[in-house]
Design a protein around this nucleic acid. Structure first.
Length: 257
DNA sequence: CGGCATGTTTCGCC
DNA sequence: AGGCGAAACATGCC
């Protein structure tokens, strides 16, 4: 489930931790540096940020970086901001827990818990976020044009490259291309200024809508649409599904060029 | 059983 | 250099 939108939902939920001091911390050392607990226990949370798909828990010591991989998910004070997970298991088994962070005064329920069946997510200290491109949620046309440069790769592959634009995953990339009327196969260097403008506008307009609606599964190209390929919800054109850059792309043959 | 999955990194090849 | 396919990671689900 986790794209930048989910990370943002979890970031917002985790602001509950601000001002609280970390008491105990258990973690799965297969997905985190060995000194994670030593570095964080006793520190007070001062802010919670997000950059692309990474949530950063800032403390008066190091920052804890949460990266969710394909199936990572978060609970704050025992509450799951996103309950239904599309490609994560519906189950939530304790052996899939990767982080249990308790703040002082917590009882049995961790203030912050990360559960990740596939274990592709990662926990880190002071993650390097400078390698990430500009955040997709607030893209200006000029910033996007500069980020894309004169590359020749299909535009969809560019949008999924986190060092180019940060935060878009497979669903949101297809979604913003859908709204911008641009085929995912278009070579990036053939985009006009008008195309880039529409793409940036689609990011600014659609991503916040999806965020409010509940995340990256809430677009027109929802998982159900992606699998059943009904007529295009915009004008009834033919939806196409194929493989681009190793990922499944879905788009409309009629209105995306 | 085979294939697929909202992710990222690495490697070999052109 | 850039791009791409495939593989690896790891596991659940249909």
């Amino acid at each position: 489930m986790p794209e930048g939108l989910e990370a943002e939902i979890w970031r917002h939920a985790a602001t509950e931790l601000v001002g609280r001091r970390i008491g105990q911390l258990w973690f799965d050392d297969r997905v985190a540096p060995a000194d994670l607990a030593d570095a964080l226990v006793g520190c007070t949370v001062v802010a919670v940020r997000r950059r692309g798909k990474i949530v950063l828990i800032d403390t008066d010591g190091p920052s804890l970086g949460l990266h969710f991989g394909m199936t990572g998910r978060v609970e704050v004070d025992g509450r799951a901001p996103l309950a239904a997970l599309e490609y994560a298991s519906a189950a939530d088994r304790p052996e899939w827990d990767r982080l249990r962070l308790f703040t002082e005064g917590d009882g049995d329920v961790p203030a912050l818990r990360m559960n990740d069946p596939r274990r592709l997510g990662r926990l880190s200290l002071d993650p390097d976020v400078d390698r990430l491109g500009p955040d997709a949620m607030s893209l200006e046309t000029g910033v996007l044009a500069a980020a894309l440069g004169v590359r020749r790769a299909p535009i969809k592959s560019m949008l999924l490259d986190q060092s180019v634009v940060a935060g878009l995953g497979n669903l949101c990339a297809d979604e913003v291309l859908f709204w911008a009327g641009i085929s995912p196969n278009r070579r990036t260097n053939t985009l006009t200024v008008h195309d880039v403008d529409r793409l940036a506008a689609a990011c600014r307009e659609q991503l916040p809508k999806m965020l409010v609606a509940g995340g990256s599964t809430m677009g027109e190209l929802s998982p159900a649409v992606r699998s059943s390929l009904p007529p295009c919800p915009l004008e009834g054109g033919l939806l196409e599904r194929s493989r681009i850059g190793g990922r499944t792309a879905v788009w409309c043959l009629q209105h995306q060029h």
